[in-house]
Amino acid sequence: MVFGAIAGGGDFSRHIAPRLTRRHGEQVRAIATRLTRQDRIHNHSLIRSGPTFTRNIMLTIALPKGALLQESIARFQAIGLDFSAFLDKSNRQLQITTPNGKAQGLLVRAQDVPVYVEYGQAQLGIVGYDVLREKQADVAQLADLGFGHCRMSVAVKASSPYRSALDLPAHCRVASKFVKCARDYFNSIDLPVDIVPLYGSVELGPITGMSEAIVDLVSTGRTLQENNLMELEVLYESTARLIAHPISYRVNSDGLSDLIQQLRSPALVTI
């Protein structure tokens, strides 16, 4: 409701800024102050005046380490923002500025991308849907970018008697680094299980007998096959998503609209 009021204009300084500050705390106090000043200067025309007022504020983008990084950089290169220095193996910098000086990039763990965006340290980010489902961050999901395809699955030993998740015994152990997603899934099918948090080589859970099953991301399925595991269920499909800080996006305070539309363009899809 607050975001709708912002998008439609109105008296930001009297009604909206105090509510945003109470809800989000210190991470948006600076944004609220900036927009209140803008509101006074431009007679409450937030959407039209936003890009002009913040013309000199550099855009910050959070990029994920790992499998999504190369394609994420290619997408931004296609619209004139070059973060390719992150691909240089000799580079140790975690924050760089594009050669044209229009944006800076933060190189962070994929799980931390929505955190940096939610707390306003980055206005945009790219991250897998699996991370968004697990983290439940307060960010705006703007677009499915169509790369980084994988799926969240329940898997067990191929030699096990189980042929569906409902065949698993009640109160059995399920290993996963996606603890929330795993718990939510088994709650949804009314099967009580003990979730064992693991953050590497989750496949070893069933192999060693520590768990009956795992919940993990599957891309090609080759790792499961090579470790004599098989999928029982697919919880959901995951792809890379473009996310934004909700306030920056709704008021267009950093001139994001054109950039977002370019990133959404089908012409950027890699064939």
Rank of each mutant, 00 (worst) to 15 (best):
I79Q: 04
A74R: 08
D144G: 08
V2I: 10
H149W: 12
V127L: 13
F12N: 00
S153Y: 07
Q38Y: 01
C150Y: 11
V139L: 12
I61K: 05
H24A: 01
D184K: 14
L94C: 08
A110L: 08
S211L: 09
Q111T: 05
Q27A: 05
A67E: 14
G105L: 08
S45C: 00
T220N: 10
K180P: 01
F83R: 11
Q70L: 06
D216E: 11
S153C: 14
F147L: 14
L35Q: 02
V251M: 08
A267W: 06
A155V: 15
Y185E: 10
S160V: 02
G10H: 03
S164T: 07
R19M: 01
R151G: 04
D138T: 04
P64C: 09
G80V: 03
R34V: 02
M1D: 15
H24Q: 02
L242S: 10
E231W: 00
T54F: 09
G66S: 06
R55C: 07
S164N: 10
V215P: 13
S176D: 15
N100C: 13
E212P: 00
E226C: 02
K89E: 12
G50H: 07
A32V: 04
T36D: 09
Y129H: 10
H15Y: 14
K177Q: 10
N56L: 05
A62W: 04
L256P: 00
M58P: 02
A122L: 15
S265W: 08
L124K: 05
T239L: 02
I41T: 02
A5V: 04
S257G: 09
R109G: 14
A67H: 09
A165E: 04
L259A: 11
H44T: 00
Y236V: 04
P266W: 12
V215N: 07
T21Q: 09
G101N: 15
N56H: 04
S153T: 09
M152F: 06
C181I: 15
I61M: 03
R92H: 03
L94N: 10
A17I: 02
L87E: 13
F178T: 03
F178L: 14
L168D: 00
G146I: 07
S248V: 13
R14E: 15
V215M: 13
G105T: 12
A182D: 08
V234Q: 06
G120H: 09
A122G: 14
I260L: 06
Q77V: 05
Y119M: 08
M58T: 03
K180V: 02
S176T: 15
I214S: 02
I260W: 10
F186I: 13
I96A: 09
G200V: 11
L46C: 05
P246C: 09
R19H: 07
G200Y: 10
R151A: 14
G9S: 08
R29N: 07
R92V: 07
A67I: 14
V193W: 04
E118W: 02
S201T: 01
I214C: 12
S13P: 00
S13D: 03
D258Q: 14
I31P: 00
A213N: 13
V269L: 11
D138A: 12
F86G: 14
V196C: 15
G125V: 09
E212F: 03
V202P: 13
G221L: 10
G200T: 10
